[in-house]
């Protein structure tokens, strides 16, 4: 085990995402000195927190051989649901802080519930995860659009003020969402690499039949990975809502692709079985750094932004490719 580990440590491909990120940081600094300022780095890390936290949950699902396409829509629906609940509670519960706390709890429960529902349909219902979550991708977003009447659901002002610090506040100079992102990353790393659950997830992803024969309760573990991802989406939403204080049909649009890209760019195998939390975190940061750099410069036509992002993603994936 330790031999295998140290052998991997010398594999340069393992450091592809880190190398990619370092190169981007150098390029960014060279193009615009403001890039390397503390404020800008905190801006980037804060906005990465949503996708980053979702990516960590997604990492478990992908390692187990599954996929969840619905996370963006789920985040939008949770955001809308929690705002409606908080607005409704504002009248009957006195303190805005209590209302916000209830709203946050609701978001986590709703996320966990949605995730478990996915897991249940996939394991007991025997439906492909791609299809289940493609279905809920449409369902969640349509429900939000319906709740919002096609417009936006907006949090009451008093609540917005009480809730604001969750996104805008900082602790020791580091914004709250970045702390939460850090905690979720560490917890995810421990869960994946230091617990039986983490080993089961990897075992199922490498070979589900073998895992079954080894008496792993495959259905239960899979169910839990989706539940875990749902909770991660809930956490991300709890951090997202105070930013704009509103949810609209464009909330969380394409987050699923960003989260999946972060996981894969970070060196997790799309086929499952093996993956890295640290790589996922770096992958997520890398994706937002690209758009940050593009916004801070105007050397490339805005029409080509997406092409630049595409090239960087492919290049980093190439750096961390596996040997056959």
């Amino acid at each position: 085990m330790s031999a295998a580990r140290s052998a991997r440590r010398f594999d340069p491909h393992r450091f592809g995402p880190v190398v990619g990120l370092l190169l981007l940081l150098i390029v960014g600094t060279a193009l615009n000195p403001d890039f390397a300022t503390w404020d800008n780095l905190m801006n980037v890390l804060t906005r990465t927190a949503f996708i980053g936290i979702i990516s960590i949950g997604m990492c478990f699902v992908i390692i187990s051989g599954g996929i969840d396409l619905s996370v963006g829509s789920m985040a939008a629906l949770i955001a809308g649901g929690m705002i409606l609940l908080m607005n409704a509670l504002a009248g009957s519960v006195g303190s805005p802080v209590a209302v916000v706390a209830l709203g946050m709890l609701f978001a986590l429960l709703l996320g966990g519930g949605f995730g478990l529902a996915h897991g249940y349909l996939i394991t007991r219902g025997r439906i492909e995860p791609f299809i289940v979550t493609l279905g809920t991708l449409g369902i969640f977003r349509a429900l939000l659009t319906w709740l919002a009447d096609g417009g936006a659901i907006t949090l009451d002002n008093d609540l917005s003020d009480a809730y604001g610090p969750v996104y805008y506040g900082s602790l020791l100079g580091i914004p709250v969402p970045v702390w939460v992102f850090l905690l979720v990353s560490v917890a995810g790393g421990i869960l994946l690499n230091r617990t039986a659950f983490g080993r089961y997830v990897q075992a199922i992803g490498s070979n589900e039949q073998v895992a079954r024969f080894a008496a792993v309760d495959v259905d239960r573990v899979k169910l839990l990975t989706y539940g875990l991802l749902g909770v991660c989406v809930g956490i991300a939403t709890v951090l997202y809502v105070p930013r704009l204080g509103s949810a609209s049909p464009t909330t969380g649009l394409l987050w699923e692709l960003e989260a999946i890209a972060a996981v894969i760019v970070g060196g997790t195998s799309f086929k499952g079985g093996e993956g890295r939390i640290a790589g996922t975190v770096i992958g997520a940061v890398l994706l937002s750094v690209i758009s940050n750099i593009l916004n801070l410069t105007s050397i490339i036509s805005v029409y080509l932004n997406a092409a630049v992002q595409g090239c960087v993603i492919i290049a980093v994936a190439f750096l961390q490719r596996r040997r056959p």
């Binding site: 403001d34 704009l244 509103s246 801070l296």
Partner: peptide
């Protein structure tokens, strides 16, 4: 992209720049 979140991010970066 006519999107509140993207507008937030782009504006943050404009303000940095």
């Amino acid at each position: 992209n006519w999107n509140r979140d993207d507008a937030f991010k782009v504006t943050q970066d404009f303000l940095t720049r």
